[in-house]
Simulated assay, not measured.
Amino acid sequence: MSSSRVGLRFFQNSRAAFRNASAPFRRQGAQSRRWQSAEAGEQQTIFQRLWNSPVGVKTVHFWAPVMKWGLVIAGISDFARPAEKLSLTQNAALTATGAIWTRWCLIITPRNVLLATVNFFLGCVGAVQVSRILMYRRSLNDGSSVEAAKDIEAEVVDAAKSVVEKTEKAVEKAIEKAA
């Protein structure tokens, strides 16, 4: 049996399964069941409630959290990396993003609990990584948290200065081209 035959059979079987699952949505007479309320004597299945939900599978409110789990998984996989190879600014940004968006997802309408959950875990993973980095840097300075804080401050200042320099160079080039 060829592999194309197997693929065709899979396609036909999945199509039939989808048709059976979507049977309640087919037209019946002049009115579609899709627009009838559940109070009309028909209970919706879990699939129908998920499909018709304002944060259901048809919307970005579902797919954004699904894709964002990739960041959480990447952060968890970084637990195996040594702390000296982790970026403090990147993990601090992930922590802040997780904290801010967890709150925001519970305020917006429709309230998106799936996105709030993934952002909460993103913030937790970032906080764990930031604490690992800070503990590592503290151990380098013989337990002095003041010196570790000064090192972190110097790193942030250096990064900001390089951004300012790059921006100034880009502005100078833009002015030269315009002149």
Rank of each mutant, 00 (worst) to 15 (best):
T109M: 13
R81K: 13
W101G: 08
Q90D: 11
V113H: 13
L86Q: 01
A80W: 09
R103Q: 08
P110F: 07
L88N: 02
L86K: 05
V113N: 12
S77N: 07
W104G: 00
I107M: 14
I108S: 02
D78V: 02
V113E: 11
Q90F: 13
I108N: 05
T97K: 06
N112F: 01
T97P: 03
K85D: 09
C105Q: 12
L106I: 04
W104Q: 09
F79A: 03
T109H: 14
A80V: 03
S87W: 02
N112L: 01
T97N: 15
L94T: 00
L94W: 07
E84S: 10
S87C: 00
L94H: 11
L115T: 02
L94Q: 08
A93I: 07
D78E: 12
V113Q: 14
E84H: 09
A93D: 05
R81L: 14
L88G: 01
P110A: 05
R103Y: 15
L106H: 00
E84I: 00
K85M: 08
A96F: 15
A92F: 10
A83H: 03
I100R: 09
A80G: 08
W101L: 11
T102A: 03
S77V: 04
R111M: 11
R111K: 14
A99K: 05
I107R: 13
T97E: 07
R103L: 15
S87Y: 04
E84K: 08
T109R: 15
P110K: 06
T95P: 04
E84W: 08
F79T: 04
P110N: 04
L115N: 15
G98P: 05
Q90I: 09
N112T: 06
L106E: 06
E84L: 00
N91E: 10
E84F: 10
A96I: 13
A99M: 12
L88A: 12
W101T: 01
T89V: 13
I100G: 06
L114Y: 15
L86A: 04
I100C: 07
A96L: 15
L94M: 10
T97M: 14
R103S: 12
Q90K: 10
A99D: 01
L94Y: 13
W101V: 06
L88W: 10
I108H: 09
L114N: 14
A83W: 00
K85T: 05
T89Q: 14
T95G: 00
I100F: 14
S87Q: 02
L106G: 04
I107W: 14
Q90V: 12
F79D: 03
L106P: 01
W101N: 02
C105S: 12
P82W: 08
F79G: 01
R81F: 11
Q90W: 11
R111F: 09
T109S: 15
Q90S: 13
A93H: 05
L114V: 01
I107F: 14
A92K: 03
F79C: 05
T89N: 12
L88M: 02
C105Y: 04
A83D: 04
C105P: 03
L86C: 06
R111S: 06
